[in-house]
């Protein structure tokens, strides 16, 4: 899970989930804590989905 996807691609990560911002990849301080947690959960769920998906090459999971 990373914000700068090209870096993850360069270093060879296989399952990549794009995140919000460098200092808060899994959060957004401009939202309320409740909204933020919903956002974080959706990103983590996407990571779990990525882990459960068969892939043959580097894949970016945008949804």
């Amino acid at each position: 899970m990373c914000t700068i996807v090209p870096i993850s691609q360069t270093v060879g990560a296989n399952r990549i989930v794009p995140t919000i911002a460098i200092p808060h990849p899994l959060g957004n301080p401009s939202k309320t804590p409740e909204e933020e947690k919903i956002l974080r959960r959706s990103l983590v769920e996407r990571a779990l989905k990525a882990l459960q998906t068969e892939i043959t090459e580097q894949t970016v999971f945008t949804e």
């Binding site: 808060h24 899994l26 959060g27 301080p29 947690k37 974080r40 983590v44």
Partner: peptide, 11 residues
């Protein structure tokens, strides 16, 4: 402020 923003332990 909230390290879950980097390491999502809460979720």
């Amino acid at each position: 402020q909230d390290a879950d923003r980097v390491l999502p332990v809460d979720v």
